[in-house]
Design a protein around this nucleic acid. Structure first.
Lengths: 176, 176
DNA sequence: TAACCGATGATCCGTTTCGGATGATAAACG
DNA sequence: CGTTTATCATCCGAAACGGATCATCGGTTA
């Protein structure tokens, strides 16, 4: 028997479909250009999860008739309630930050400081690039797209924090 | 046949054992009070991974004789080389940030602004608490523990960024 | 000193997640 | 048309996950 509890992916799907009906492929694209910027979800889950949610009565499923077989999902009353209950309930889990660069920094004591600086500079640059991407997106994305806008705000905040962090490492090391 | 490529967990283990020999349980504790603060690793992996790395010749394994069976792992020359090669090689993967609070914010358009403010305040507070924890740790941890110190620097930076982000959401919303 | 007990340490195993490979249909182009 | 390229969907083995369980130790009490 399949899982009956809801996971973050469940709410991701529920949240997007509450916004408007969608096929799994729609979800895949929506996610890629929103939260997917810093939280990746395997597309296979975005196909499997709606089916499961439909089985739980939280989504309605409708086969498109002609052409390629594709399923359009829409939110049910129960689904909307589950989503809103979750939105309102307090969040307990702590955010997870999985950063290979940081992992390397932790173990960099066995490394010469040149290499550490190189690491820090590379990380800083990579975050600067990403910051530009977000700024560019910020110009394009209409203000009324609230969800997308929040993503960008968060993205911008993160990238600036990363840039500061690595920038300081890069500049502080050589003198030490 | 078991995996031969190395994952982040592999390097986590390699990095800590390069620092000094350890049993899986030692790893579990070391990780919990360092990178584990924002990147959780299931302990079962910290038992399985050293065994695999030993199989690859990157760690040496030594059974303790008397008492409870426990394995002490130490780094081999090959292991040290693998670790340093990884440290030096450029990092391509983008950091992943998995934050339930943000996920909720993305879908908060269906929510009244009171609830959004409540969410933002709760998140802000929770990050303030964590910031205090890090500051407290920062006082205790000796400066020469480089790895631990870097963790704390990163943790402090993240928490401050989160606090700013949520604080702004909380304060900007009511007027809108 | 035997029975207990909480803390420590290790292992197991069923579920989920992951992500790459593959398959299928549609659209575009010559 | 036939061929290519983009879109869309599914599959499946491998790895991660995390809770349950088991084993051992060092006390503490009677």
């Amino acid at each position: 028997m399949s899982r009956t509890t809801l996971t973050p992916v469940s709410y991701l799907v529920l949240g997007w479909i509450a916004h408007s009906p969608a096929t799994p492929y729609d979800l895949k694209r929506r996610v890629a250009e929103s939260v997917g910027h810093f939280w990746e979800f395997p597309h296979s889950q975005l196909y499997a999860e709606p089916a499961r949610l439909a089985g739980l009565g939280l989504l309605g499923e409708e086969q498109e008739q002609q052409g390629r077989r594709r399923r359009v999902y829409s939110i049910t009353q129960a689904g909307r309630e589950a989503l809103e209950a979750w939105l309102r309930e307090p969040t307990s889990e702590e955010p997870q930050i999985r950063d290979i660069g940081l992992l390397k920094l932790f173990f960099s004591s066995s490394l010469d400081s040149e290499s550490v600086i190189a690491l820090a500079r590379a990380q800083e640059q990579s975050h600067r690039d990403k910051l530009s991407t977000y700024e560019e997106l910020d110009r394009r994305v209409p203000k009324e797209a609230v969800s997308a806008h929040a993503t960008l705000q968060a993205g911008l905040a993160f990238e600036r924090a990363f840039i500061d962090f690595w920038g300081e490492i890069a500049s502080r090391r050589p003198s030490a």
